[in-house]
């Protein structure tokens, strides 16, 4: 978009805008594909927030694409159409610029169209990404729910069922968090996720072991049951803390961190 703006500025010298029909058509085709895929995603998603937020981004991209097509058609008909006056303020924040005059005509439409397409696509990706994060968090919360019942397990039979329930859930969380951290560009967030996941993996078998010890102790008369319960609760608490931290970091964006700036 910045480069288009510069082209627009150069057009002040009276140069004609070239015929952009073919590349604009390629952009329109790509937009049409995104609209189709986006609508399919909305229709097949069970995430109410995505279903609410994504249509707005799609409309924005769709409208911007039309703007681009219109501008292209009009510039083709009149290549000298309405040159720019002052456009630097388009990409300089308002508090840093000493002037702010409008630009006119089809060249502006072209720039606004390209900008709208990129911003709309970016918003759509963000909306999709946030939905993916919510999916992982749902799995994390299932693990938290299981951990909360660790304290009430008092028989081997219940423990076997507990392990059967918890294991697939933990495996899923582990797989999803691991693939998420690989996608992140923010090194600090990646490191925290890796560290928490390692802790969860280490703690899980120790927690099961502590639960087994507690069950065996109460089956044999209960001497030392209090300490065994304390140990089990401590381990369940540690795991809960690690999962809670994973949830927190999953929701962070790069803009939350000063160092990104």
């Amino acid at each position: 978009v910045d480069r288009l703006v510069i082209l627009h500025e150069e057009a002040e010298d009276g140069n004609a805008m070239p015929d952009l029909s073919r590349p604009v058509q390629a952009v329109s085709n790509a937009v049409a594909n995104l609209i189709k895929v986006g609508r399919d995603t909305i229709n097949s998603s069970d995430d109410p927030i995505l279903r609410q937020d994504m249509p707005g981004s799609l409309h924005r991209v769709e409208g911007a694409s039309r703007l681009l097509e219109d501008a292209c058609a009009m510039l083709k008909a009149d290549p000298y159409s309405q040159p720019a006056r002052y456009v630097r303020d388009l990409f300089v924040p308002h508090h840093q610029t000493s002037f702010s005059l409008p630009i006119f005509g089809n060249r502006k439409k072209l720039i606004d169209g390209a900008r709208g397409i990129l911003q709309g696509t970016s918003a759509l990706l963000l909306c999709f990404d946030e939905s993916e994060v919510r999916k992982i968090i749902r799995e994390c919360k299932k693990v938290l729910d299981y951990l909360a019942v660790a304290e009430v397990i008092e028989t081997m039979e219940d423990l076997v069922q507990f392990v059967k329930d918890l294991s697939p859930c933990l495996t899923k969380v582990s797989r999803e968090v691991d693939s998420r951290q690989k996608e992140l560009t923010h090194q600090v967030h990646r490191d925290i996720l890796i560290r928490c996941l390692d802790q969860v993996k280490t703690l899980a078998p120790i927690l099961i072991c502590s639960m087994k010890i507690f069950i065996q102790i109460i089956a044999q008369g209960g001497k030392g049951a209090e300490e065994a319960a304390e140990n089990r609760n401590y381990l369940a608490g540690r795991m809960t803390d690690e999962i809670t931290e994973i949830i927190r970091v999953l929701q962070l964006t790069t803009y939350d961190e000063d160092e990104w700036e």
Partner: peptide, 29 residues
């Protein structure tokens, strides 16, 4: 996956549009 691919196509097409505009403009200048 499909959304990411669609978004990449848009980025590529928009970039090609700007390149087309730039090179044509340079020739004129």
């Amino acid at each position: 996956e499909m959304i990411l691919e669609a978004a990449k196509s848009i980025a590529a097409a928009t970039s090609a549009l700007v390149k087309a505009a730039s090179s044509a403009q340079r020739e004129l200048i």
